[in-house]
Design a protein around this nucleic acid. Structure first.
Lengths: 223, 223
DNA sequence: AGTGCAGGATTGTTGAACAATCTGTCAATC
DNA sequence: GATTGACAGATTGTTCAACAATCCTGCACT
């Protein structure tokens, strides 16, 4: 009985607007719709075969997730992150991810975290750099999940999606995440040994490093 | 020049859907639309004089803020928070507010925090309990603002709006916030003395107390 | 160069329409 | 009496067409 209620979500009765939003979301986060692109209601509506009204519902969803910006009477655009945005995103991540690790009970289940670390390592060994990136995302998402809070998870998901907007400005996005694999492993080890405090400190240090690297690359392109 | 750009937002070119969402939001958070209420597209559209399509855009916005739940083919309802939701909201608050205080630099500007504390105290002295509640909300919002992060502020705003959904189940919502005024003052004092660590500990303790009080009242009403 | 003004294009919003789905009723059945 | 099935009414999901409001572009004019 109760087991079934868990599958209710899988019943997949997604609205058209929701599916449209999902399609656009993946196109945006994967860089196929680069920041600044204007999304014409007519063009995209025709391309996806949905009406303007339905499309507008999808736009609102993504605007609320900060992947699109909606300028009144001008249309929606793929968000163009400023350097301030990048700083803010990492400020948010240090606060949330660091706080989660610090408050992490010693007996917490680290299965998902370990899986993400191993997936990243094996992807790097095979040179599958895109997979390294997604594994790294999953690593941080699973760190946030240690809070055991759906709301923390969702906020983290949004922030990581935003960050993807800016990863594409890197000169070599393929290898951007690779140096952090060792840090991920170290943080996992520290968590397994129950030392959340040190893990949090290590994480915050490397987030700051990544932020610096990103803002540097950012200044080079959008000057 | 730059001063003007700050006023751009005040230029008030809000869309109809945005204004409708604002109206509904205030009705919900003030308890005039109690949790569980179904919001008929036709009725509300007629009452506000907007078309169904525009109204649906507003619904989507509020659903994304978790004030409404959207059930496919059944309509939208004012969210009914479960006890798990209450726990999650306070988990979120402890993480964010606590983390902000802990990471608070000693020289941070506390003007907004102080204003909120004083406003609460003077409202309590006059017996204006509703104002005590809003001042308390502003206190916590201004704590989150100490992070200097728009995203943290927004997340906090959403969480506090959600919490309002549940405040109305209290037997005496008027005086619910009153006992916490002294705690607010104490936290402000600790921050002014630069002891963010102790302030964070005090805050987390009293958030846990408030959570217990709320869940208790909750169990009494909704079984 | 800078300003002002058409004209076209796009968005904002509405209203109507139809399909899909839900809800409640009522009879038939065990 | 409780359960099932079918039907009708109501509501939502989605589309379409239309018009108003606004923006953008190009051009004449100074």
């Amino acid at each position: 009985m109760q087991e079934l209620s868990a599958e209710r979500a899988a019943l997949g009765r997604a609205s058209t607007a929701g599916r449209v939003a999902e399609i656009l979301r993946s196109h945006i986060t994967e860089g196929r719709l680069p920041p600044g692109t204007r999304l014409s209601e007519e063009d995209i509506g025709a391309a996806l075969g949905v009406s303007r009204n339905t499309l507008r519902e999808a736009f609102r969803l993504l605007a609320h997730e900060r992947l699109l910006v909606h300028e009144f009477n001008r249309g929606v655009f793929v968000r163009r992150l400023t350097v301030d945005d990048v700083h803010d995103l990492y400020r948010f991540r240090r606060l949330v991810e660091g706080g989660v690790l610090r408050a992490c009970p010693p007996d917490v289940a680290l299965d998902d975290v370990r899986r993400a670390v191993e997936e990243g390592e094996s992807a790097a060994a095979d040179g599958r750099w895109v997979d390294v990136g997604t594994a790294n995302m999953r690593f941080h998402q699973s760190l946030a999940a240690l809070a055991g809070s759906p709301r923390v998870e969702e906020a983290m998901r949004h922030v990581l999606a935003e960050l993807r907007l800016v990863f594409h400005v890197m000169a070599a996005p393929q290898t951007f995440h690779e140096p952090y694999l060792a840090d991920n492993r170290r943080i996992l080890d520290l968590l397994e040994s129950g030392d959340g405090e040190t893990a949090a400190a290590a994480l915050e240090r490397y987030l700051t490093a990544a932020e610096a690297q990103l803002t540097e690359a950012y200044a080079a392109t959008s000057g």
